[in-house]
Design a binder for these strands. Structure first.
Lengths: 173, 173
DNA sequence: CAAGATTGATCTGTCAATCTTC
DNA sequence: GAAGATTGACAGATCAATCTTG
């Protein structure tokens, strides 16, 4: 019985508010809907990108982040942050992209600890080819699903959730 | 340059609206924030559950869905839908849960095509032990991060996004 | 043969070392 | 020694193929 209030004992007066730490029926329903949306959206966008461009969602975003830099270059750790991936995950991922010729890596000449990930011409072309269909999907499934003001609300809420996660991450329980 | 407007040619008058099919700067920012939130939230909840209960997010929800049935039983395909997992993924997953003694499977006596997944006592105990900390995290990171009315907005928006995904899934492009 | 479910091959992500450079 | 990055072993997800039952 997770996520739902413990059954009140028969003789007990039902409480007007959920027990502390649990979710009210409304909260539970909202969370489940939200959670379902996240799972489905990830799946749909990833599959669409995979079918239309042989790229995963993260791979696409790695290329996209690189393309927005004037020199098409980013340090691995910066790229990891921008793509919301662990450094380890990104390292494996970039290695695969490198094998496909979409990205290359070279050590930072100024500081040998850093590795630069650099978008290749082919990587750029792949991204440019993939982008329109992907962006259209995002618009169709998300942007156009809600009003502009709702979208702002979403973003504001998302921002606050991110803040809480970042606080939560560096915390001793 | 995906997700951003193509550079206007120097002599061109900048358009007041984004090119059709592309995202405005605000839309792009909102989408990125939203996308980042999804990635981080998944990671955080999954990691937390893993550390506190040796369960992944999907595993937890499989147990949770079963626990809400009076007979603690669900057909594999129903469970797959409720947990937003493919049938294949669920099959692998339930096999692992079965090896750990948290779930057992038996064919539906009425219709041999169906398989029943059934929560064991141990599975139930595991869930009950895991739930409080997990629910508290969900409350901390999501529910309490937004106002009740914002939460309703979120859920409503999520609902509409889900609808669009479901429409999109069964469509010929 | 269609629906429900499982399997196996393969690919990707995670975690815990490890390596390198400052 | 600490930060940035990589590696290898293992756990988990995906896809296509397969099996089974009605």
């Amino acid at each position: 019985m997770p996520h739902s209030r413990p059954e009140p004992v028969s003789t007990e007066v039902p409480e007007p508010l959920p027990a502390p730490g649990w979710l009210s029926p409304d909260e539970l329903a909202a969370w489940r809907t939200f959670s379902r949306m996240m799972a489905k959206l990830q799946w749909e966008l990833d599959g669409h990108l995979q079918r239309t461009a042989c790229l995963s969602f993260v791979e696409y975003h790695a290329l996209a982040m690189l393309s927005e830099r004037p020199d098409h270059t980013l340090r691995m750790s910066e790229l990891a942050d921008l793509t919301n991936a662990s450094l380890s995950r990104l390292s494996h991922l970039v290695k695969r992209l490198e094998l496909r010729g979409l990205v290359r890596r070279e050590p930072d000449p100024d500081n040998g600890r850093f590795t630069h990930a650099i978008l290749t011409e082919q990587g750029h072309a792949t991204l440019v080819a993939a982008a329109p269909a992907h962006v259209a999907k995002v618009r169709e499934l998300v942007i156009d699903a809600v009003s502009p003001s709702q979208l702002r609300q979403f973003a504001a809420g998302a921002e606050r959730i991110i803040d809480r996660i970042d606080r939560s991450a560096g915390r001793c329980p």
